[in-house]
Design a protein around this nucleic acid. Sequence first.
DNA 1: ACCCATTCCTA
DNA 2: GTAGGAATGGGTA
Length: 911
Amino acid sequence: MATSTLSPLILVDGSSYLFRAYHVPYLQALSTADGHPTGAITGVLNMIKSLQKDYPNGNIIVVFDAKGKTFRNDLYPEYKANRPPMPDDLRCQIAPLHEMIEAMGFPMLVIEGVEADDVIGTLAKQASEEGIETVISTGDKDMAQLVTPHVRLINTMTNVEMDEAGVVEKFGVRPDQIIDYLALMGDKVDNIPGVEKCGPKTAVKWLTEHETLDNVIANADKVKGKIGENLRSALDQLPLSYELATIKCDVALEKNASELAPVEADTEKLTTLFTEYELRRHLADLKKGKDAPSAEEVVEEEAIPEAIDADYDIIFTEADFNAWLNKLMNAGTFAFDTETTSIDYMQAELVGVSFSCEAGKAAYVPFAHDYEDAPQQLDRDWVLGKLKPILQSTSYKKLGQNLKYDAHVLSHYDITLAGVAFDTMLESYCYNSVASRHNMDALAEKYLGVKTVKFEDIAGKGAKQLTFNQIEIEKAGHYAAEDADITLRLHHALYGKLSKEKGPLSVFTDIELPLMPVLTRMEEHGVLIDSDLLGEQSQAIGTRLSELEIEAHNIAGKTFNLASPKQLQEILFTDLQIPVIKKTPKGAPSTAEEVLQELALDYPLPKLILEHRGLAKLKSTYTDKLPLLVQSKTGRVHTSYHQAVAATGRLSSTDPNLQNIPIRSEEGRKIRQAFIAPDGYKIVAIDYSQIELRIMAHLSDDPGLVKAFAEGKDVHSATAAEIFGVDVDSVTSDMRRSAKAINFGLIYGMSAFGLSKQIGVGRNQAQAYMDKYFERYPNVMSYMEGTRQTASEKGYVETLFGRRLYLPDIKARNQARKKAAERAAINAPMQGTAADIIKKAMLAVDAWIATQDSELVKMTMQVHDELIFEIKESALESVTAKLVEIMNDAAELNVPLIAEAGHGDNWQQAH
DNA sequence: ACCCATTCCTA
DNA sequence: GTAGGAATGGGTA
């Protein structure tokens, strides 16, 4: 009986979906005008309607958990004891949902004393016995135990269907082993005990070896190691865990599966309910008499997968290449991508190039694949010679994904990429910077609904990963051509959206895109490092570290790894019995700096550890590492600036990160001595003074703050005078320090609690300071409040230049997340506007430098509010003055924008 | 070889 | 309290 002519039974685990829907962010935002939440209702209704569409003949039955205890609580009083009570904003959605489902005519079961799982298990078993195919719609993995040749699971929210093979694929064990598997692992959420430290991997391993839980138990004494001990100590309660994990399939029900038939929908009642809960979409569907769209159709921005047949060429002949070249030249705009041997732009060698100028059509031109028996390819220099005039011309418009990388590589073949009109990575970043990554694979999935071939798919991963030249041309060609094709299609999808948003579009056109070649030049030029000096520093630090280690071991009475927080916890809080001051988020006793600072007052060891940590950090991260990053080709260090990482609009820097070179501590600052000027040059560092506070003054237009800046006052002293009600001349350094903390705190969207911790006063005192501040600077307060409000209304905030930052959590029910989003909303316009301004300054500086002798001055680094240059000694003063002027003029605020310069033979002196 | 938590460096 | 990157240990694969 492989198939059945009877209608399939569709069993819906309503409770599982209710909880899932409740936690879906975009559903959380839904409520009626008077604030009754409706997200979970909407989620479950969408899901049921989507099932209706997918199984038109299906006989749908919806099952919910009943209130109160179940038989499992009798077996084990601790069952689900850790569950927090159901939140009110979920509880209040249950009754209306039940009413709606009943009015829709679906049979609905809510049976006391058992869980929905048990009712579903029972119905599924009955159906199987009658030869009815069953589909269980659930998000709960435990249900996998119910799967048989006639029972499948479907997760309607993710649209993943699971039959017996699917269970094996997902879990690594068969459905009939699922209970054993669950019993071994236990369940933290339901408070079911299992074997300590036994997760999915271990459970699968044991069940693969021994088939059943009973056999695992019988062979328990053969399991070695800590995990074996854990298994043996769990033996007694494993039978209980097994029983708790078992879904009961013989619940006494009034009607069996085949007797539960749907009744006609009560349209009138549904209209009333949908109107009351303002479910407009469902109301509209009711009128049209059609099924509601599936859950994903409700989400905005959902990509509709494009059905485009891929037609990719791999070019081996000059004639074919010339034909493509002609197409590109006539295309107006084309997508372009390089394939190379390394992701490090300084090491990379070209292996091939790909293009596309029409969706679905692309070409790959290989010229340096050198695996054994690789076919004859076109000559690299011939290809590049042909391409050079086109790539260098601004008349031919190019687009790509992160073309900064390609520009670097091409520059090593004497090609200066120009005419870059679009970059999909930057388009995505400007359109919506809040994404974990703006890489092509993620964008293709998000905006095109297309899954691309990943580099790892063709090259493998880990130590055995191949480089592109070693990959078979057929495979490589498809991958490379797809990259160009997808980039082109992504551009069409993304730019259409971006161009409708004025602010984000101007950030893309006027700031990010033109900044790309500027960053390329900075990275390519690199920074000069005195490796010998760093070597000496490493050695000195090493000596001191050994001394500290010996002393620490003596005090502890045994040897231990000073760099291990875990071992240190043991020594401090167990061996030495020092009281715990603070715990880490995971609950372990913290050994963080602030804790050790405090302990250092009473005990000798923490002080040693602090010094050791500080020095070890300097050595491993900076003095040891930087010399290793000097490129032999240039004798310099070449960082990577990332333009699409920080959600606020800042740059970030990696390999190495040149934006966190120490400055605060005396020893740390010495590292900056190793950032040196070449012969005949000076290092000049120009930084913006108080840029974020000035932006706050501008955005809030607070008279007091604006005046303080206009008069060129020390703003922290001025603030202190206002808050403490004293004359500016009587402000003590303590007052100034507190005022400074408040000023910074405001930029970070702080609370009184945060401030009190920062400046070491009580919470009430901190609140009093803040009240006083807002009294003196009332527009700052209204600005902050206004920002929170706009963020909540629009879902995003903007910088002065239109850069946008979305805040998906701004309406979160979870108060911690909501508060965090509010702080980000306060901070982003200030941090982001500062980022816009320094980027504009970089563009203006670069444009001016281009008009000068190429040896006169180079911009080498950017550290958020500071630009660092190498300037020819002979023209030091005039060039510095010019640069300061350009930076001052980068933006017109209602307070002065002040850049301050310093110079020296190294970066430390320049400060 | 990879993931994670913890810690610490910057503006 | 905002925004980042990187090193380490320690667990699991």
